[in-house]
Write a protein that binds this DNA or RNA. Structure first.
Lengths: 286, 286
DNA sequence: TTGCTCCTCACGTCACGTGAGGTGGC
DNA sequence: TTGCTCCTCACGTCACGTGAGGTGGC
């Protein structure tokens, strides 16, 4: 006594939901549901082999709801899949980690907004004193990296530690202050590249990730910044702008990546103490 | 005495920048620059007609920088173009408006995160008392709309005003409390649809945006909510979940859009006072 | 038998990234 | 002449939206 083919599909007495109904109840679009099926993120509990109809159980609504909320947080589908692999508390923790990243980025953006609004309003800015200096050709040891904004501080710290310990092991003397050269934007979406550099005298072999190269002699314009400036993104950007403006006003041309020179004893000084330079190498216009 | 063809392009003595150099200085990718050119957002000041080479002036770096920052704020290119059409203060205001939208969405998301984490941790929730009632078939006047989350409150308010004034002008008596039926998700990316409804007796002609229809008789399960609940998105979502869970536990099936019934005198009550119901119409499982 | 619902392509959107394949300038 | 830089397609990415064209179930 087989069921007639036209009977509505059921599991243990509970009727299965067609995609339209499941879409309505979950508030996920049919297109989204088909995509989640294809990706294995939310598969119908039954697919009719003869016509491909998708049938969902109503208890799948819980997973659907969680996916929906995570998507509202703009979490990528791949990451959602990972979160939903986890148990209760671990899943909650994974969400918290994700959200912390988002909060960090949001904070950054607030600084950018402040900066932008000041730029558009053409605010009088605290005068920056622009200095220039001649930098001789130097042999440097450097570590190149591509990192996004949240990791930048730890990347710089670790790289400097590695550079100094390599120099130390080789019995080689560092010269002057370490600096970081920026070859590209570093933010939540762009990962540089950037280069953490220490000049030295003597001879050192390059290692797996340490490059030895000559930084050519050049002029550079710079501003001396207090340690606390790194805490204020808008002010930091204004300082960059001030140096760039000086180059433009004085008909100079930036030809090497701009850099931050960390001359201060970072851990033992206050926010008001001078700690680093923002420097733009330049040539006179060709 | 024309210049030889191979001379570097210049304007009034200042050399023009090729795309690679402009890309380096602006920290915008070449691909992005070509796109902005195609869209008219940032056009090179000169394009060599013979080979299509793009040449930029260095003073275009300011516009490039602003575009870059606005993109870091995830502003769409179209909107960036609109902002850059504006003058200083107006542009600053446009950025502030945009940012306010982002802040609003961010706030919403914080509520979602709280809710989600509680869901994953399977927190004991304040018990909601689920009630049921029989709702008779009613004639209703309604306004359908598609709005995103930020506009939802004003849309509901305006629609209710319009409905009540139309009823008033027609000398028709409203019956019971107005309600809002949700046919789809309403958030920053999804715009419902939703329907603002008032039941009435008598006869009323439909107008441009007012639909007259019969809401069928049904059972519904509901929770009574204090006014202040709307301020706490996580608690609001838990309340929805509580009703949905009741339906599931009692083997009921939601067949009509869920709704919020606004019976309270909204402007003259406190946050603790009961103000609205969250209701799910249901049938017994077929 | 008529609609309504479901299905699977296929193409569009947004802001690019990433080659492929070809020309041009020093 | 050799590379290096520039160019224009064209396709990929991400998470869908929006038809087109066709089948199936009540």
């Amino acid at each position: 006594m087989s069921m007639p083919e036209t009977a509505p599909k059921t599991v243990v007495g509970e009727p299965l939901l067609l995609i339209r109904e499941f879409s309505r109840l979950s508030r996920l679009s049919q297109k989204a549901l088909r995509l989640y099926d294809a990706l294995g993120l939310l598969e119908p509990s039954l697919i009719d082999p003869s016509n491909g109809y998708r049938y969902y159980r109503s208890d799948q609504l819980q997973r659907a709801s969680r996916i929906s909320v995570l998507r509202q947080l703009e979490m990528p589908l791949q990451r959602i899949a990972e979160v939903l692999e986890l148990e209760g508390t671990a899943a909650a923790a994974a969400v918290a980690v994700y959200w912390h990243e988002i909060e960090t980025q949001h904070h950054e953006k607030r600084g950018l907004v402040q900066y932008l609004i000041q730029v558009f309003e053409d605010k009088e800015l605290p005068m920056f004193e622009i200095l220039t200096r001649q930098v001789p050709a130097q042999k440097i040891a450097s570590i190149n990296g591509r990192v996004f904004q949240p990791q930048i501080a730890s990347f710089i710290g670790q790289s400097m530690n590695q550079l100094y310990s390599s120099l130390g092991q080789a019995g080689v003397t560092p010269v002057g202050a370490p600096f970081v050269a920026y070859y590209g934007k570093v933010d939540a979406d762009s990962d540089g590249p950037l280069e953490v550099c220490v000049a030295f005298t003597g001879s050192l072999e390059p290692s797996e990730n340490i490059v030895i190269r000559i930084e050519p002699a050049h002029q550079e314009a710079y501003v001396v910044c207090p340690k606390g400036l790194v805490k204020s993104l808008p002010d930091l950007l204004h300082a960059y702008d001030a140096v760039a403006k000086w180059l433009h006003d004085n008909n100079k041309h930036n030809h090497l990546p701009c850099r931050e020179v960390y001359f201060g004893d970072w851990d033992n000084i206050g926010d008001q103490d001078p700690a680093f330079d923002i420097a733009y190498p330049y040539t006179d216009q060709a």
